[in-house]
Simulated scan of single mutants.
Amino acid sequence: MIVLNTYAIITEQFPNKETKVKDFDPYILKDNLLEFTYQEDGDLIKLLFVKKRIDQEQVNCKLVINYMPYSRMDRKIEGDLFTLQYICAFINDLHFEKVYVIEPHSAKTIELLRNSEAIYPALDWLPAIMDQMQFTDQDRIVFPDKGAAARYHNTGYDHSCIFDKTRNPETGRIENMLLKQGDIPKGAKCIIVDDLCSAGGTFLWAGQTLKQMGASEIYLLVTHCEPRVLSGKLLDQDSPIDKVFTGTSMMQQTHPKIEYITINLENYV
């Protein structure tokens, strides 16, 4: 989905699957803001068409990327292409005045995108969630791995914990998860914080470990959540995760364990 100055661009398909973009001339301003929500590769072609039309008016245009596509393919792995660099090159060639990325998976995205800036709304959501959960000094913010810890080290909360997880190099499955930093007091409420949830295996493992260590309530805060989570075990009745707080960058399906948080772009752009 592409939104131009709060107007949702309308697209259709011709019978041969080519993209048809409906006129949006009345919504082009002197200074424009495009909001891009990736759902499939065809959305990148739509972004190309929309930006090229705006360019014809010789006006300014900034881009907000709600979720950076291919952000997990952020390095060269034997046998696979380093695809993030190609997506970033594609966006760079569209020559946006500024590019804002909501919670990039790693610093590589910002490194590859010209005139870009990362936005971390989870850090703004966290205090309100802590208040809602009535956090005390006996409760804990939990980072499931060192990547999350590096991303959110500015939480301003002293009582945080960091897990260290080990994956099987061939299957990618988690084989072990140990508490590397901090402690879990008996009866503690915990909020696990990270950028992205897919099926939720990491958070399910972390939640089970926290329960074994004596945690009483466990919540998950992720900016991006894939629809795949609905088919996993993370949201089951017997899951250790009591509730998931997330944005609407990748899904909006309702579930009793999911609470959506809206990003107010005016606070960042």
Rank of each mutant, 00 (worst) to 15 (best):
Met177Asp: 10
Ala188Phe: 05
Ser216Val: 10
Lys186Met: 11
Asp194His: 06
Ile174Gln: 10
Ala206Gly: 05
Ile191Thr: 05
Gly201Asn: 10
Ala206Trp: 07
Met213Arg: 11
Gly182Gln: 13
Met177Lys: 04
Leu196Ile: 13
Ile184Met: 13
Ala215Tyr: 11
Ile191Leu: 14
Met177Cys: 12
Leu179Phe: 09
Leu210Thr: 06
Pro185Thr: 15
Thr209Pro: 02
Trp205Phe: 07
Gly214Glu: 12
Arg173Leu: 12
Ile192Ser: 03
Gln181Trp: 13
Arg173Ala: 14
Leu210Ile: 09
Ile192Met: 06
Lys186Ser: 10
Arg173Met: 12
Gly214Lys: 09
Gly182Trp: 07
Glu217Gln: 15
Gly201Ser: 10
Asp194Glu: 08
Ile191Gly: 05
Gly201Pro: 02
Leu220Cys: 11
Ala199Glu: 07
Ala215Pro: 01
Phe203Gly: 00
Gly207Glu: 06
Gln212Ile: 08
Gly200Asp: 02
Ile174Ser: 13
Cys190Thr: 14
Gly200Phe: 03
Leu204Pro: 05
Leu220Lys: 14
Leu204Lys: 00
Ile191Ala: 09
Gly200Ala: 00
Lys211Trp: 01
Leu178Ser: 13
Gly182Ile: 09
Ala215Leu: 05
Thr209Cys: 08
Asp195Ile: 09
Ile191Lys: 07
Tyr219Leu: 05
Leu210Gln: 05
Ile192His: 03
Thr209Lys: 13
Cys197Val: 15
Ile184Pro: 14
Phe203Trp: 01
Leu179Ser: 11
Pro185Ser: 06
Asp195Met: 03
Ala188Lys: 04
Gln208Phe: 04
Leu178Glu: 14
Ser216Phe: 01
Ile192Lys: 02
Leu179Lys: 00
Glu217Gly: 01
Lys189Gln: 14
Asn176Lys: 15
Ala206His: 06
Leu210Asp: 02
Gly200His: 03
Gln181Gly: 02
Gly201Ala: 09
Lys180Thr: 12
Gly200Trp: 03
Cys190Glu: 06
Gly201Cys: 08
Ala206Glu: 07
Thr202Cys: 01
Arg173Pro: 00
Cys197Pro: 00
Cys197Gln: 01
Ile191His: 05
Phe203Asn: 02
Asp195Leu: 06
Glu217Asn: 14
Gln212Gly: 03
Lys189Asn: 10
Gly201Val: 01
Met177Gly: 06
Gln181Asn: 13
Lys189Leu: 07
Gly207Trp: 03
Ile191Gln: 10
Ile184Asn: 09
Glu175Gly: 15
Lys211Phe: 03
Thr202Pro: 05
Lys189Val: 09
Tyr219Trp: 05
Asn176Gly: 15
Lys180Glu: 12
Ala188Val: 03
Asp194Cys: 03
Gln212Asn: 07
Ala215Met: 07
Gly207Leu: 03
Ala199Met: 09
Ala215Lys: 07
Lys189Arg: 14
Glu217Cys: 10
Glu175Thr: 04
Gly182His: 13
Cys190Tyr: 02
Gly187Tyr: 08
Glu175Gln: 15
Cys197Tyr: 00
Leu220Gly: 12
Trp205Glu: 08
Tyr219Arg: 15
Ser216Met: 11
Glu175Ala: 08
